[in-house]
Amino acid sequence: MSVFGKLFGGGGKGKGPSPQEAIQKLRETEEMLTKKQEFLEKKIEQELQIAKKNGTKNKRAALQALKRKKRYEKQLDQIDGTLSTIEFQREALENANTNTEVLKNMGFAAKAIKSAHENLDIDKVDDLMQDITEQHEIAQEISDIISKPVGYGEEFDEDELLAELDELEQEQLDKNLLDIGGPETVPLPNVPSTSLPSRPAKKEEDKDDMEDLQRWAMEAL
């Protein structure tokens, strides 16, 4: 019988423990050893204090305390190694258990897929998909026909209509340009309502000038 078999109580011919049972046992062992660690750490601290206290007073008692401290430290090291081994074993079992569950569920899903495909024939599926594609194309053609505008059976050339529209737009543009450059667009000033002041005739002005010149000549003589 193996060491783990003895630990978990399994017989050589009997059925071994399940992964869940083994994981639980390992966790209980880890808990027990952890408590043992705490106990030894306290004992080590106690023996250290005894050695310090009797270092100068009772050398023999101090040495005995240090010896006990060394034994406790050795046990603590052994427990540390054992815990590392148990932790490694537990993680391996947990991973194995997880993988087992994953594979079990994958197998269950594979069986479900197989069961779903039992009544399906690949040839029938292919024929069905071809029928669906054909019906879709027919439905699209019908939609295209229905969506075409109906104008009493008349059909017009779209290019000719576009050309005519361009001509109309050019004609309107030319008209707008003529309206902008024409004389009628420039507003003329309003005719003043008041009459302009009268200006004396040129002859009368010349006559007055001659009279002034003659008067000036007479005064000079």
Results as ranks from 00 to 15, higher is better:
6 K>I: 06
14 G>C: 03
16 G>C: 06
17 P>T: 05
19 P>C: 10
19 P>S: 10
21 E>P: 01
21 E>G: 03
22 A>M: 15
23 I>L: 11
25 K>Y: 11
26 L>P: 01
26 L>R: 09
32 M>R: 15
33 L>W: 12
35 K>Q: 11
36 K>S: 12
37 Q>K: 12
38 E>S: 15
39 F>E: 15
41 E>F: 05
41 E>W: 08
43 K>P: 00
43 K>F: 00
44 I>L: 10
46 Q>Y: 07
48 L>S: 07
48 L>V: 02
49 Q>P: 00
49 Q>Y: 05
51 A>D: 05
54 N>Q: 03
58 N>K: 04
62 A>Y: 07
64 Q>D: 03
66 L>D: 01
67 K>D: 01
67 K>E: 09
67 K>I: 12
69 K>F: 01
71 R>I: 06
74 K>N: 10
76 L>W: 07
77 D>N: 15
82 T>Y: 13
82 T>A: 10
84 S>I: 03
85 T>R: 14
86 I>Q: 02
89 Q>L: 14
89 Q>A: 15
90 R>C: 04
92 A>K: 10
92 A>R: 05
93 L>Y: 15
93 L>W: 13
94 E>L: 08
95 N>V: 13
96 A>V: 05
99 N>Y: 06
102 V>L: 11
108 F>M: 07
111 K>L: 13
111 K>I: 04
112 A>L: 13
112 A>M: 10
113 I>D: 09
114 K>T: 14
115 S>I: 01
119 N>P: 02
123 D>C: 03
127 D>P: 02
127 D>Q: 12
127 D>I: 07
129 M>D: 09
129 M>C: 03
130 Q>T: 04
133 T>G: 05
134 E>C: 02
137 E>M: 05
140 Q>R: 05
141 E>Y: 04
142 I>W: 01
144 D>P: 03
146 I>R: 11
146 I>W: 03
146 I>P: 00
147 S>G: 06
148 K>L: 07
148 K>S: 10
155 E>N: 08
156 F>D: 00
163 A>N: 08
165 L>S: 00
167 E>A: 08
168 L>W: 07
168 L>I: 12
170 Q>A: 13
170 Q>M: 05
172 Q>M: 00
172 Q>D: 14
173 L>C: 03
173 L>M: 09
180 I>L: 05
180 I>D: 08
183 P>G: 11
183 P>Y: 10
184 E>L: 11
185 T>F: 12
185 T>E: 08
188 L>W: 04
193 S>N: 06
195 S>D: 14
195 S>N: 11
195 S>A: 14
197 P>M: 09
201 A>V: 10
201 A>S: 07
203 K>R: 12
204 E>I: 03
204 E>W: 01
206 D>F: 08
207 K>E: 06
210 M>C: 00
212 D>F: 04
214 Q>W: 09
216 W>Y: 15
218 M>C: 01
221 L>E: 15
